[in-house]
Simulated scan of single mutants.
Amino acid sequence: MDWQISQFFGDKSSMDKACDEDIISAVAFNREGTHLCLGDKAGRLILFSEKESRKATCKQFQYFTELQSHVQDFDPLKRRNLYVLSTNDKIIKLWKMSEKVIKKVIKGSDKELSMPVLQKVEETIYPSLHKCFPSLHTSKVKAISASHNEEFLLSAEEEKDIKEAISSCCFHPNHDNVFLLSTNMGTLRLVDTRVRVTNPDLVNFGYTQGPKNFFSELIASCHDAKFFPNANYIASRDVLAVRTWDLRVAEQPVTTVPINSQVKGKLCEMYENECLWDQFSLSVNASSKMLLTGSYHSAFNIIDAEGRSNLQLDLSFSKKTTGRETLGIKAEPITDYDYKFKTLKSICHPTQDLVAVTCLNSLFFYTKKKAI
Score class of each variant (00 low, 15 high):
M1V: 13
S6E: 03
F8A: 00
F8G: 07
F9L: 02
G10N: 07
D11P: 11
S13A: 15
M15P: 06
K17M: 15
D22C: 09
I23R: 13
I23K: 12
I24H: 05
S25Y: 03
N30R: 08
G33S: 14
L36S: 02
L38I: 14
L38M: 12
G39C: 11
G39P: 00
A42M: 07
G43I: 06
L47E: 09
L47V: 09
S49Y: 01
A56D: 02
C58M: 01
D73F: 15
F74G: 05
P76F: 04
R79N: 05
D89S: 04
I91Y: 01
I91W: 02
W95I: 01
I102C: 00
K103V: 09
K104P: 01
S114V: 15
L118K: 03
K120A: 09
K120F: 00
V121Y: 00
V121L: 06
E123R: 04
Y126C: 08
P127I: 04
P127W: 08
S128E: 13
C132E: 15
C132K: 15
H137Y: 10
H137R: 03
T138G: 10
S139A: 12
A146G: 00
A146V: 14
S147A: 11
L154H: 01
K160D: 10
C169K: 02
N174R: 10
N174L: 13
H175F: 11
H175W: 10
N177D: 04
L180P: 04
L181R: 06
N184Q: 00
N184W: 03
N184H: 05
G186R: 08
R189G: 06
L190H: 05
R194T: 15
R196H: 14
T198W: 02
D201G: 00
V203R: 01
N213R: 00
N213D: 13
F214W: 10
F215K: 01
I219T: 14
C222S: 12
C222M: 12
K226Q: 14
Y233M: 04
I234N: 04
S236V: 03
D238F: 01
R243F: 00
W245C: 05
A250G: 12
A250F: 11
E251K: 09
Q252W: 02
Q252L: 01
E274A: 15
C275R: 10
L276R: 11
L276S: 05
S283E: 12
V284F: 12
V284N: 11
A286R: 11
S288A: 13
Y296N: 02
Y296L: 07
H297G: 09
N301L: 13
A305S: 15
N310K: 12
N310P: 11
N310S: 15
Q312M: 14
L313E: 06
D314F: 15
L315G: 11
S318K: 13
K319L: 14
A331E: 11
A331F: 01
E332D: 12
T335Q: 10
K342L: 06
T343N: 08
T343W: 03
S346N: 13
S346L: 09
I347T: 15
H349W: 02
H349T: 04
T351P: 04
T351S: 15
V357P: 04
C359D: 01
N361E: 05
N361K: 09
L363W: 08
F364G: 03
F365A: 03
A371D: 07
